Lab assay of single mutants.
Amino acid sequence: TTVVVGNKKYTFDNPEAAEKFAKKVAKKLGATVHKTNGTFKVK
């Protein structure tokens, strides 16, 4: 599962961990999490 934050990509074996990370980053940046085909995008 990939999490994309700006131009950085983070890969997780565990989708739950990926989602948690994405939400944490989004909260910090005041952004939102978008899920597309198993990829979480923070923007």
Score class of each variant (00 low, 15 high):
Gly38Leu: 04
Val5Cys: 05
Ala26Ile: 02
Lys41Asp: 15
Gly6Arg: 06
His34Asn: 06
Ala17Trp: 10
Lys27Met: 10
Thr36Lys: 07
Gly30Gln: 06
Val3Glu: 00
His34Glu: 15
Val33Met: 05
Asn14Gly: 07
His34Lys: 07
Ala18Asp: 00
Gly6Ala: 06
Val3Ile: 03
Thr1Glu: 04
Thr2Met: 13
Lys9Val: 14
Thr32Gln: 09
Ala31Tyr: 08
Val4Ala: 07
Val25Leu: 12
Leu29Asp: 02
Thr2Glu: 08
Lys9Met: 11
Asn7Tyr: 11
Ala22Trp: 02
Lys23Gln: 12
Thr11Gly: 06
Lys41His: 15
Phe12Asp: 00
Lys24Ile: 11
Val25Ala: 07
Ala22Lys: 01
Lys28Glu: 09
Asp13Gly: 11
Val3Ala: 02
Thr11Leu: 13
Gly30Leu: 04
Lys20Arg: 12
Ala18Pro: 00
Thr2Ala: 10
Lys8Phe: 10
Val25Asn: 02
His34Met: 10
Thr32Ile: 09
Gly30Lys: 08
Val3His: 00
Phe40Met: 07
Gly30Ser: 05
Asn7Val: 10
Ala18Leu: 02
Thr36Ile: 15
Ala26Phe: 01
Ala31Trp: 15
Asp13Leu: 11
Gly30Tyr: 04
Ala18Glu: 00
Phe12His: 02
Glu19Gly: 05
Asn7Asp: 08
Thr2Pro: 06
Lys27His: 11
Leu29Arg: 04
Thr2Cys: 07
Pro15Arg: 08
Lys9Arg: 12
Lys27Ile: 09
Glu19Ser: 06
Lys23Gly: 08
Pro15Gly: 07
Ala17Gly: 06
Asn37Leu: 06
Val4Ile: 14
Gly30Phe: 04
Phe21His: 02
Val33Arg: 01
Asn7Gln: 10
Lys28His: 09
Tyr10Asp: 00
Phe12Ile: 02
Lys24Thr: 10
Asn37Phe: 04
Asn7Lys: 12
Gly6Asp: 05
Lys8His: 12
Thr11Glu: 10
Phe12Arg: 01
Pro15Glu: 14
Ala17Met: 12
Lys20Asp: 11
Thr36Pro: 02
Gly6Leu: 09
Lys43Trp: 14
Lys28Thr: 08
Thr32Arg: 07
Thr32Val: 11
Phe40Ala: 03
Asn37Ser: 05
His34Trp: 07
Ala18Met: 01
Glu19Lys: 07
Lys27Arg: 09
Lys20Thr: 11
Leu29Gly: 03
Val33Lys: 01
Thr11Trp: 13
Lys24Val: 09
Val25Gly: 00
Phe40Arg: 02
Asn37Pro: 07
Phe21Met: 03
Val42Gly: 03
Lys23Met: 14
Lys20Asn: 12
Phe21Pro: 00
Glu16Gln: 12
Thr1Lys: 05
Ala26Cys: 02
Gly6Trp: 10
Asp13Arg: 12
Thr2Phe: 13
Tyr10Ala: 02
Phe12Asn: 00
Phe40Gly: 03
Lys23Val: 14
Ala26Met: 02
Lys28Arg: 11
Thr39Asp: 15
Asp13Ala: 13
Ala18His: 00
Val42Gln: 02
Tyr10Cys: 07
Thr36Phe: 13
Val33Pro: 02
Gly6Thr: 04
Leu29His: 06
Phe40Gln: 03
Leu29Phe: 07
Ala17Glu: 12
Gly38Thr: 06
Ala31Gln: 05
Val25Tyr: 04
Gly30Asn: 09
Gly38Lys: 05
Ala22Thr: 02
Phe12Val: 01
Glu16Leu: 12
Ala18Lys: 00
Val42Arg: 01
Lys8Asp: 05
Phe21Cys: 03
Thr2His: 13
Gly30Arg: 06
Tyr10Arg: 03
Val3Arg: 00
Gly38Asn: 09
Asn14Trp: 07
Pro15Phe: 12
Ala17Asn: 08
Val42Ala: 01
Asn14Leu: 08
Thr2Asp: 11
Thr32Pro: 04
Lys43Ala: 14
Glu16Ile: 14
Thr11Ile: 13
Gly6Met: 09
Ala18Asn: 00
Thr39Glu: 15
Phe40Ile: 15
Pro15Tyr: 14
Val33Leu: 06
Lys9Asp: 06
Phe40Lys: 03
Lys27Ser: 09
His34Ile: 15
Lys23Asn: 15
Ala26Leu: 02
Lys28Gln: 10
Glu16Asn: 12
Phe21Ser: 00
Leu29Lys: 03
Tyr10Met: 04
Asn14Arg: 08
Pro15Trp: 09
Lys43Ile: 15
Val5Pro: 00
Val25Phe: 04
Val4Leu: 14
Ala31Thr: 07
Val5Glu: 01
Lys23Ile: 14
Lys24Leu: 11
Tyr10Phe: 12
Phe21Val: 03
Val33His: 03
Val25Trp: 09
